[in-house]
């Protein structure tokens, strides 16, 4: 399978350097650099200026009480907010140094690079094979049947689903169990060769065993992808992520190494949240 970087447009090298030195806590290169990101839904402001660097080849967890804007910020990262007519996004978000919100950026190309997995498994009412082949087909990634078969197989393998479905690729994807459906959706996202996978509460509709499988999968995918996951489970954030960002009322309160956030939070609000005093 081809994995290639598709430039969003001719790169502008003058921007993209993090402004806030305190944010650059590790040496690895940031995949996303967000500065002063504000989102309004109509008159209502949902995000009040978010500054964050998201590292490549690692898992970043977004935590915070309900309604604090985690999903909203996640959707900024692949411009899914474009699909909500009332939403307005201001600020800069750089992906590999290129501004996502630039007029020259084609959101369709961007979303092929930044895939997304939703809270409820949403396989299309098609066969398992067609579900995975959907993205490669619309982006023209395969020129022959063999190539497509290969993409489907390797995507399902990466999503740890191949062994369970290899003998029934042509059955309906909606007939799988919830956990299998969620892995199918991950395979579907992987099939277009993204660099980033965004996951919005991917396990909240799953039982503990299916959840454990997905967490294991996330840990494997980290080798190849930049992963951002929204979760309501502290334990899950602690298990799967290297970086954790705590959101509260539309603000990013604290971001840092997961260990530090959970053992030694700097902000009182973070402390209260992880010890379960609110949220």
């Amino acid at each position: 399978m081809k994995l290639y970087t598709r430039p969003l447009y001719a790169p502008d090298t003058s921007i993209g350097k993090p402004r806030d030195p305190s944010m650059t806590t590790t040496a690895t290169t940031p995949k996303f650099v967000a500065r002063d990101v504000k989102v309004h839904y109509g008159d209502k402001q949902a995000l009040h200026g978010i500054d964050i660097d998201i590292l490549d080849k690692s898992v970043t967890a977004f935590i915070g009480p309900s309604g604090c804007g985690k999903s909203t910020f996640l959707r900024c990262l692949n411009r899914m907010n474009d699909t909500i007519p009332s939403a307005r996004v201001d600020g800069t978000i750089l992906l590999d140094g290129e501004d996502l919100n630039d007029r020259k950026v084609d959101p369709v190309v961007l979303r092929a690079r930044v895939g997304m997995v939703f809270q409820k498994p949403n396989p299309f009412p098609k066969t398992i094979y067609e579900n995975v082949a959907y993205g490669p087909k619309i982006h023209g990634l395969a020129t022959s049947k063999e190539e497509m078969d290969h993409i489907v197989e390797s995507s399902l393998k990466k999503a740890s689903l191949w062994n369970e479905v290899s003998d029934r690729l042509h059955q309906q994807g909606t007939g799988l169990s919830g956990g299998q459906q969620q892995r199918l959706v991950i395979a579907r996202a992987i099939a277009v060769g993204p660099e980033v996978i965004l996951m919005d509460e991917p396990c909240s509709a799953l039982d503990p065993i299916a959840t454990a499988k997905i967490e294991e999968l996330i840990d494997e995918l980290r080798q190849q992808f930049c992963i951002v996951i929204v979760t309501h489970s502290m334990a899950q954030a602690a298990r799967v992520s290297q970086k954790t960002a705590f959101f509260h009322l539309g603000n990013l309160v604290e971001v840092g190494n997961t260990e530090d956030i959970f053992t030694n939070p700097k902000d009182q609000r973070t402390q209260d949240y992880i010890t379960g005093r609110f949220g």
Partner: peptide
């Protein structure tokens, strides 16, 4: 047709008309 199917398709980089033709209408 649930919005989640449209979101799923759009999030993979499908255009609106591709989403309608390949996901919404078949569903």
């Amino acid at each position: 047709v649930p919005q989640s199917l449209r979101d799923g398709s759009l999030a993979m980089g499908a255009t609106r008309s591709e989403t309608i033709k390949k996901v919404v209408l078949p569903a």
